[in-house]
Design a protein around this nucleic acid. Sequence first.
DNA 1: TGCACTTGTGAAAAACCTGTAAACAACGGT
DNA 2: ACCGTTGTTTACAGGTTTTTCACAAGTGCA
Lengths: 106, 106
Amino acid sequence: MAVGGAFEKTGRLEVRPEEHAALVDGRPLSLTVRELQLLVTLWSNPQRILTREELHTSVWGTPPRRDDRSVDVYVSRLRAKLGAALPDQKLIYTHNGIGYRFSPDG
Amino acid sequence: MAVGGAFEKTGRLEVRPEEHAALVDGRPLSLTVRELQLLVTLWSNPQRILTREELHTSVWGTPPRRDDRSVDVYVSRLRAKLGAALPDQKLIYTHNGIGYRFSPDG
DNA sequence: TGCACTTGTGAAAAACCTGTAAACAACGGT
DNA sequence: ACCGTTGTTTACAGGTTTTTCACAAGTGCA
């Protein structure tokens, strides 16, 4: 496969759940456990809208309590770190009233 | 099965209630929760005339109050978004004095 | 055609939801 | 005990959706 050419636009983010790691261009992001769990959950379900319930259950192990905002707070932190490493890529999309979706493309 | 030919005219709209999504040609429409609920209700009952009462009850959970126009307002918004994505297809038909009907074909 | 009634739709107001900083708590290491 | 780090909760600004309203446009019938 061609490598030299213009510039790679994909594959910049690698997620390795077994290694508890997420890399951008080969350099590890420093994510906390929760941030990584959240990223892994989203990344494992690309293009799919995940509800807050699903996300909370996957990351915290239990469904969220009423008015729990932790998913939002962690999405915000994750976006900040991903955004710092990949300034020009939008990866996590909000679906108002439902939850979030991870999409490497649009 | 033939694939190349002229152009597909059907199957352009997909509705996936479990995934909180509606797609046209594979691309997600950005519908609000109410808009999606309304579309799902109509789409689940193709060719059938649904009264405002039925639609309101299905989407809002309660029958409409006297002079409630919310069903009409949301039908209008839904038509606008569907029309933008599928300019040449009429999907939602009005039945004066009764309600609306969803028909992928005529 | 004229009238009464119904529907379509833009826009304002109200309600609701999300983004994010900051306060606070818990914990491990020194 | 103090410090740095992570996790949890709260508060508030800003954004989006829902609701409501008003009027234009359409429909059907005498």
